[in-house]
């Protein structure tokens, strides 16, 4: 049986007096691509921040590779892309990667590989601030790939990207998973659901489904995840409970 890379139990997070995550639990298996789908504002980013260990938790636990999320030993093993393009606008793509490679203590050769993986070779000496939105988010993704992470946490990495590139990136995520890493990708675009091995559907801080895309469609008797999402939201609480 596959080992779990991530185990979340009864996680509650409050931000500004509001309960953003309302006691959720799930696991992510090593070597799989787990999708996190839900409308914007449903708590996706907060959940991702919790996994990386930069979010204050109200209660519950988040374990990554058997250790508390955010603990020192994990910082070398996690690649994280925040929703904002978290690279330096006034540096070139290569300069950005060089800096983060030094911080991670990884070999310079990884820089070229990471740039190639996100298809930015032709722009590697361009200053990030001059690039398009999609190119900037790819530069940000390249940073997360640098350290050969065992867990890749990606907050909406494919927003606004060309379909061809989006397909290539999903292929890359699966290649990374095949090498044994766990990949956790969020999106608010429901049509990306079928690219994941397994899905978490989230709404208003609660997980309303946790299963493979096929089984979610089967159980809700729908043809696509968008309809399944609607069926789950409009259906009875029983159905959602059964799914989770």
């Amino acid at each position: 049986m596959m080992k779990n890379a991530v185990e979340v139990r009864d996680l509650v997070v409050r931000r500004g007096g509001r309960e953003v995550l309302k006691g959720i639990g799930f696991t992510i298996a090593e070597g799989s691509v787990m999708g996190l789908l839900g409308p914007s504002g449903c708590g996706k980013s907060t959940l991702m921040r919790s996994l990386v260990g930069v979010q204050q938790l109200a209660s519950g636990s988040v374990e990554v590779f058997g250790e508390e999320a955010g603990s020192k030993a994990l910082r070398h093993r996690i690649g994280y892309v925040t929703q904002e393009v978290s690279v330096y606008d006034d540096l070139s793509v290569t300069e950005n990667l060089k800096f983060f490679a030094q911080v991670l203590g990884v070999d310079g050769a990884r820089i070229e590989e990471a740039i190639a993986a996100v298809d930015l070779v032709s722009h590697k000496d361009a200053v990030v601030g001059h690039l398009s939105g999609g190119q900037r988010s790819r530069a940000s993704l390249a940073v997360a790939l640098l350290g050969d992470p065992d867990l890749l946490v990606l907050d909406e990495p494919t927003v606004g990207l060309d379909p061809v590139l989006r397909r290539d990136l999903w292929k890359l995520f699966h290649e990374i998973a095949e090498r044994g890493a766990a990949v956790f990708v969020s999106s608010h675009v429901m049509d990306e659901a079928d690219r994941c091995d397994r899905l978490l559907l989230m709404r208003e801080g609660v997980i309303i489904a946790d299963d493979t895309p096929e089984r979610i469609r089967e159980k809700t008797r729908t043809d696509d995840i968008e309809s399944a999402f609607l069926a789950l939201v409009e259906g009875t609480g029983d159905q959602a409970g059964e799914m989770a």
Binding site: V54, R75, E84, V87, L104, V143
Partner: peptide, 14 residues
């Protein structure tokens, strides 16, 4: 802080 680079750095071994 606002660009997210600090958050990313703090999730790294920094």
């Amino acid at each position: 802080r606002s660009s997210g680079t600090l958050e990313r750095l703090l999730a790294m071994p920094m």
